[in-house]
């Protein structure tokens, strides 16, 4: 058998790769993807580091199930004259009980929300534990904090949508709490309610926030978050040898101990800075 590829094989490969090359030449996206996939991460990267991408997965589950729910959900608090039930509530009943696999889609959206929040807190906990919010990753911590608040905003606005007693009365209290805040409170309350009482206006407002405004913001900020992760690299666990190496002074001196609580063991509280310069 010849070692070189046959002419035919070469032709097939050229045809198959043509779109890839075309795209790369015009956008650089393939190079970007290659960089993303083949970049180096610390050798000590472990299961703790999967929590961020697990959170991302939960977000994607919410996005996909949410899009399907939006095809069947009707954001109206008006009563259906035939059954006397609110239209939004009936559409939730239909999704849950009548649509094929509707229960799965709604159930995954509902419980996915809780899993998303739990993973967020776990991910945040691991970032805290590893001290991964320190220089140069402060900005990414801030982006994460905004993501956390927005995720809770998703929970708050989504909770009202089934328009049942639980969601209605929890929202009454929640809006009153917001309206209680000084200065911006009353405006915020009026804005969320969309009027004097909680009714149809409130429901459509919450729906729009829940499926357009907040998820849009979340998606954008997640992109920024991941960009910063790739740019700055991942922090290895603080208990590994590698971490010790990173803390070392370039001149092979002692690990960093500057700060309030653990001043330099030899006592000038200055992390040995002066000593090294002398």
């Amino acid at each position: 058998m010849p070692k070189t590829k046959s002419k035919r094989q070469q032709q097939i490969e050229a045809v198959a790769l043509y779109p890839v090359d075309w795209l790369e030449e015009r956008s650089g996206l393939i190079g970007g993807l290659r960089y993303f996939l083949f970049r180096k991460v610390p050798a000590e990267t472990n299961w703790f580091h999967t929590l961020g991408s697990a959170t991302l997965t939960a977000f994607i589950v919410q996005a996909v199930t949410g899009v399907i729910l939006a095809m069947y959900y009707k954001p109206s608090a008006e009563l259906n004259p035939e059954t006397g039930k609110p239209i939004a509530y009936e559409s939730i009943e239909t999704i849950t009980n009548d649509l094929t696999l509707g229960w799965l889609v709604r159930g995954m959206h509902r419980w996915g929300a809780s899993v998303f929040i739990i993973l967020l807190f776990l991910h945040m906990g691991r970032v805290f534990l590893f001290g991964a919010y320190k220089y140069p990753r402060e900005l990414n911590w801030l982006v994460g904090a905004v993501l956390l608040l927005m995720a809770m905003g998703e929970g708050l606005t989504g909770y009202l949508l089934p328009w049942d007693q639980t969601s209605y009365w929890a929202t009454v209290v929640a809006i009153n709490i917001n309206a209680n805040a000084p200065i911006a409170g009353p405006f915020l309350g009026d804005f969320l309610r969309g009027g004097q009482e909680i009714g149809s206006e409130t429901l459509t407002r919450f729906y729009s926030l829940h499926m357009l405004v907040i998820p849009g913001g979340l998606a954008g900020l997640i992109a920024l978050h991941l960009y910063l992760v790739v740019r700055l690299g991942i922090t290895p666990p603080p208990w590994t040898k590698a971490a010790g190496g990173y803390e070392a002074q370039p001149n092979g001196g002692r690990p960093a101990r500057t700060g309030l609580v653990n001043p330099s063991p030899r006592g000038n509280g200055n992390g040995g800075r002066e000593r090294r310069e002398s």
Partner: peptide, 16 residues
């Protein structure tokens, strides 16, 4: 948080 805790130290026992 990242602006309150500006030390470089990341080891847990050293961040009481």
């Amino acid at each position: 948080l990242p602006f309150l805790d500006r030390r470089r130290e990341r080891r847990i026992v050293r961040r009481p």
